[in-house]
Design a binder for these strands. Structure first.
Lengths: 113, 113
DNA sequence: TATAGATTGATACGACGTGTATCAACATAA
DNA sequence: TTATGTTGATACACGTCGTATCAATCTATA
């Protein structure tokens, strides 16, 4: 298994994106690559996948970066919800309560109050 | 209780939006006001609330209309999920399965596969 | 019916967001 | 040291979005 640690030029080529775009996304807080001691950006597997999701939202759906922020936040909540949908979790009252909180979290993100 | 049926100029004033903006939102499929026999737009309570949500997403968060489309779709799913979170629904296997399908629906909307 | 006011659909324009090209300064490896 | 890549900043072209404008049509009232 490769470590899949990429510098910005390779990451950009793999993703089909411009290096400047990746830098701008970081400046806006959409991704947070780590840095080498010389302050060079290092992209992990997780950030590459996050950038692929962003690319789909932007290129295919036409969502702007403010919308990407919201959708990524919702995606994080959905990711936390998934294990709460198992029968073991749904059998416990605590699991049900946690699930309710996550759904309410999405409604707050959407301003549905 | 008032019927809360508004023509476009009153609806725009209530919402703090421009009538042309409401027409453009309809053309893009974000809202679907009914029409009088003379083809004048009629805004119901539900559409006013939908427009308030759109306005928050656009004005406060800076989301563009493509992002609003996605977020409204997710909001619809969340609305369908809410009754599935009751104990009565979660006690039935059918309710649990339906809940899982709705969550999966959101993941598809986000392209999380 | 006639008249005034509102709505409709279409077009156009200004402001803003976004991707990317460019640049000098710095980092890295040979 | 030299060559190549990265960093951060600036600038520009293009598309999106809100809204102003217009003639034609609808609606209500006199």
């Amino acid at each position: 298994m490769a470590r899949e640690i990429l510098f910005i030029s390779v990451a950009a080529r793999v993703l089909g994106m411009h290096p400047q775009t990746l830098r701008k996304y970081e400046r806006l807080g959409l991704v947070q690559p780590t840095r080498t001691v010389g302050s060079m950006r290092v992209y992990s597997r997780e950030e590459i996948e996050r950038l692929q999701l962003i690319k789909r939202l932007v290129d295919d759906l036409g969502v702007n970066l403010a919308g990407v922020q919201q959708l990524l936040s919702i995606a994080d909540v959905v990711e936390r919800m998934r294990p709460l949908l198992s029968d073991e979790a749904l059998d416990r009252p605590a699991g049900r309560r946690q699930l309710g909180r996550e759904v309410e979290h999405i409604t707050r993100l959407l301003g549905m109050s």
